[in-house]
Design a protein around this nucleic acid. Structure first.
Length: 901
DNA sequence: CTCAAAGATCCGCCACAAGCG
DNA sequence: GACGCTTGTGGCGGATCTTTG
């Protein structure tokens, strides 16, 4: 297998491309985020978006079907230009690189990240086309790379300036990042082998995201049986949205095509979505803007499907580099070094935006955002079921996420008084204890069909598929989420992605994340986000693993004895409930099986008698975990339970500790309407804390909103106000963070982020205090300090600012790279700051010898450079740990240095 | 190398709606 | 237009094969 990546310079567009060596010979691969409404299409309602004619370079007439069909390159960027084009060269071909470096046009970067296998003959069709004199668009002198004859770079330039961003001769083919990046240039390896009718069908990408691909159309039923050995071949779902056999992937020519008699009620928008596909028949129209009126018809992948030798025409630079076929014998030049042309970022959405706010103005998906302000609240009225079997692309849809009691999740925006509808964005987020971010291995999948009542649109934001559905005042700003399924991406595909550090294995829990952006006067907007409870997406776990959804109590006295009712799934008569206690470094120090009342218990309910704690003399609350286990390795996620000390006048008051913090934390989710038993609600409070961090960012753009700190509700939710409750120095009292970590499942790892100056006073961060942020990168596990070298403008005493970084761009945000885009906010060292990083589930120990407690790293320094670093470790994965420790090491080094001075 | 678990794919059924006679 | 049959599609449940640790 060969893995291709586009270059990191395109940040968020890090897409792995995995091709079988047999399939891959030369491919232009990329995905672009958007839309390109001015490409080969137009908006019938908007004269400014009138279809652009894509003219044949030869005839200067719109492409004909025949002409298009002669081209083998399957799509193109509509915007190849000096701003956007990048040439990627072979990773290990220094010679080629040097050559390219010396010859490439300005503005074209050469990436060393591509590895590719030699070319193969795949697509006679394409080869013929490339040899077609009609394609000899530019008779410019060609340039060959010594020893790499079929290196090629081509920029479509054959278009008039008005449509100069359009392609010349490409078959469009979508490439979906969530879809398997397997690119099969051999879409039709041998057209003659296929159903003759299929030769004229340009199928969807073999890995096209189901929900994103407008269905291809079959011209002849006779082809159906050809591709399915099933006795019910004709009746089996042939939806390109879903059920595809593995063979179909291997041979996309066998891809089913759509002949729906019941088009989706949203089909009018289908082609506005990403990943549009074309048939040969409709491609010319699409390219020429005829007939479609579908601004979203944007090819998202270029696949050259010929072994034709190409040469670079560098002299044309921006305006006209073509991939020129030449006559050199490929076989005599085995060292094929293909180039990959990477598209630009397009900012225009493929879909008609419900949300009118430009994507570039919106916070990245991995940014934590509160679910409420004093004015608005985004709330999940009905949570999704804790299990939902995600479907692979090879499968048919497995439907929309449902609610536990039937129906579907419901989300409502409270407090909105406007008349305009808003767009509710939905994406699949992580469900571990880290900062919520888009899940690398799952994507939201738009469900359409008769059962779906909610209109939805798809878009990609920074590589994450996002559904957008309208929130309408007439519906009381409530949306029934019956259009959101979950698509599972293959682990291998995602793990190959550059910069991806997460592993897919056992990473099967997700959350539905909902966002809304509420425009404010003056062009600002308030963004709110809420995430659902975790959803387990694996097949097996749905049948085997017990899951606790609810517990009727979360604490009792040390003596135990009380009955606790657990509600959940997959309980059995053999289910046991085990209470455990672990130290901060993850060592289990207590385990006790609770008594389960088997007579009362049901598959969805367990009646448990809470065991007494091992030491009933302790005088402080003790947090433990329990889990349900059905047998070997079939245990639920750990749940949380707190033993409270027996009332005694002799109990002395302890300093602020985890327990106190926990209770503070609990107040938050309750206010938010989340289950107090869910660990994740605590994470929400983490996020809120981060929002507090965000609020400290400067120089940033204040986007919203004025929040009276006197609002009690907001005080209970706002991190800034929570801070104020904490008393004085934030860092001096890490309880806020400990509480969060303390509630985390043992099996999880976490990195919590805290910022604040010890000198900071209560309330909103004040001017001149230079708060700093160590922000855990959602993707790469790097910590990025976001400092503020400049005194912050003093916020109004009664306001809270939600600030997004100035200069934020999709590229930056999407990069999923902490080192790129936000660099402009990672500015100079703050004059004084404090950092508290708390990790749980560490495994590495002993790096810091001056730990106050086992498994805890703590470093303090006082004085002007007041800094405090507190790290707790409990069973964190090593990889995880390494990243953090590196940051800590540097941080501590700096502290030491300061201390010495 | 073996094994088990998890991932990925495949198979087939059902319900329902639309097309059609 | 009603009816019944056929077909297409979505939505599963479960089995099986493959990969991974």
């Amino acid at each position: 297998m060969t893995s291709l990546y586009n270059d990191g310079s395109f940040g968020e567009d890090l897409r792995p491309v995995t091709c079988s060596d047999e399939d891959l010979e030369f491919a232009y691969l990329f995905e672009y985020e958007p839309p390109c409404s001015d490409f080969a299409a137009g908006d019938q309602d908007d004269p400014n978006l009138a279809p652009h004619k894509v003219l044949s370079p030869e005839s200067e007439q719109p492409f004909s079907l025949e002409e298009v069909s002669r081209y083998s390159i399957k799509s193109c960027s509509p915007s190849f230009n000096e701003h956007s084009t990048e040439v990627l060269s072979a990773y290990d071909n220094q010679e080629a690189r040097k050559f390219l470096d010396s010859t490439r046009p300005p503005g074209l970067a050469v990436s060393p990240r591509i590895k590719i296998t030699p070319s193969h003959e795949h697509y006679n069709h394409g080869q013929d086309s490339l040899q077609n004199p009609h394609l000899n668009i530019s008779p410019r002198p060609t340039l060959t790379v010594p020893g790499h004859d079929n290196l090629a770079y081509r920029e479509p330039q054959c278009l008039s300036p008005a449509s100069s961003n359009s392609s010349t001769s490409w078959h469009s083919e979508s490439y979906s990042p969530w879809a398997s990046p397997c690119v099969s240039p051999s879409s039709v390896q041998n057209p003659g082998d296929l159903c003759p009718r299929l030769q004229n069908i340009h199928t969807a990408s073999p890995r096209t995201s189901p929900g994103t691909s407008p269905r291809t159309s079959l011209t002849d039923d006779s082809c159906v049986g050809h591709r399915s050995p099933s006795p019910r071949a004709g009746s089996r779902s042939t939806s390109p949205q879903g059920k595809r056999t593995y063979d179909m992937y291997r041979n996309p020519g066998l891809m089913p095509v759509h002949r729906s008699r019941s088009p989706s009620p949203h089909s009018a928008h289908e082609d506005h979505t990403i990943g549009a596909h074309y048939t040969h028949a409709n491609l010319p129209d699409a390219m020429n803007g005829f007939g479609s009126g579908q601004p979203g018809l944007v090819p998202t992948k270029i696949v050259k499907t010929s072994t034709q030798v190409y040469t670079l025409c560098p002299e044309t630079h921006v305006e006209g580099n073509y991939l020129m076929p030449c006559d050199q014998d490929l076989e005599s030049k085995p060292a094929v070094e293909p180039f990959f042309v990477i598209p630009p970022m397009w900012s225009k959405p493929l879909v008609p935006n419900i949300c009118s706010i430009p994507v570039a103005s919106l916070p990245p998906l991995e940014w934590p955002i509160p679910n409420r302000t004093d004015q608005y609240e985004l709330h999940i009225e009905v949570q999704p079921k804790p299990h939902h079997r995600a479907h692979y692309e090879t499968e048919g849809s497995r439907g929309a996420v449902k609610a536990p009691m039937g129906g579907h999740p419901v989300v409502q925006l409270h407090g909105y008084r406007g008349k305009e509808q808003l767009g509710l964005q939905i994406f699949i987020g992580t469900a571990d204890e880290r900062i919520l971010k888009p899940h690398a291995f799952y994507q939201v999948h738009r469900i359409t069909g008769k059962t779906v009542t909610t209109t939805s649109y798809e878009k990609i934001i920074n590589g994450t598929k996002v559904l957008e559905i309208p929130l309408e005042p007439k519906n009381n700003m409530k949306a029934i989420i019956d259009c959101a399924g979950i698509l599972k991406l293959r682990n291998a595909d995602i793990e190959l992605r550059k910069g991806e550090t997460d592993v897919g294995r056992k990473n099967t829990r997700v959350r539905l994340v909902f966002r809304v952006h509420i425009p404010q006067p003056g062009g600002q907007h308030v963004s709110l986000q809420v995430a659902s409870h975790p959803i387990e997406c694996s097949q097996r776990s749905a049948h085997e693993l017990p899951m606790v959804e609810k517990q009727d109590m979360d604490s009792c006295s040390l003596l135990g004895g009380q009955q606790m009712i657990l509600t959940g799934q997959n309980f059995s008569s053999d289910s046991k409930v085990i209470f455990t206690e672990k130290t901060q470094d993850g060592q289990q120090i207590w385990e006790m099986e609770a008594t389960v009342d088997k007579d009362k218990s049901q598959p969805s309910m367990l009646f448990v008698e809470v065991p007494s704690y091992r030491d009933t003399s302790v005088c402080r609350p003790v947090k433990v975990n329990f889990y349900v286990i059905n047998g070997k390795r079939k245990r639920s996620q750990p749940q949380h339970f707190t033993y409270t000390p027996l009332p005694s006048p002799s109990i002395k008051t302890e300093p602020i500790d985890e327990y106190e913090a926990d209770h503070m934390g609990f107040a938050v989710p309750q206010i938010l309407g989340l289950s107090p038993h869910s660990y994740y609600h605590n994470q929400r409070s983490i996020l809120h804390s981060d929002n507090g961090l965000i609020s400290s960012m400067a120089p940033c753009q204040r986007l919203s909103s004025s929040l009276p700190s006197q609002d009690v509700r907001f005080q209970q939710q706002s991190p800034a106000i929570i801070y104020s409750h904490a008393g004085k120095s934030l860092s001096g009292s890490p309880s806020l963070y400990q509480q969060t970590g303390g509630m985390m499942p043992d099996s999880h790892r976490s990195v919590l982020v805290h910022t604040g100056s010890p000198a900071q006073s209560v309330g909103p961060i004040s001017a001149g205090q230079h708060p700093s942020i160590i922000q855990f990168s959602p993707t790469n596990h790097h910590l990025v300090r976001v400092g503020d070298p400049q005194p912050l403008p003093a916020p109004q005493p009664d306001t809270q600012q939600i600030i997004y970084c100035d200069g934020y761009s999709p590229q930056a945000a999407a990069a999923h790279s902490p080192t790129t885009p936000q660099a402009h906010v990672a500015v100079a060292q703050p004059l004084a700051y404090s950092t508290v990083i708390q990790q749980q589930s560490f495994v590495q120990k002993g790096q810091q010898k001056s730990q106050a407690t086992p498994g805890t790293q703590q470093m303090e320094a006082s004085g002007d450079g007041q800094r405090r670093v507190t790290v707790k470790e409990e069973n964190l994965d090593q990889a995880y740990l390494d990243d953090v420790n590196e940051i800590i090491r540097k941080d501590l080094t700096g502290v030491h240095a300061r201390g010495q001075t």
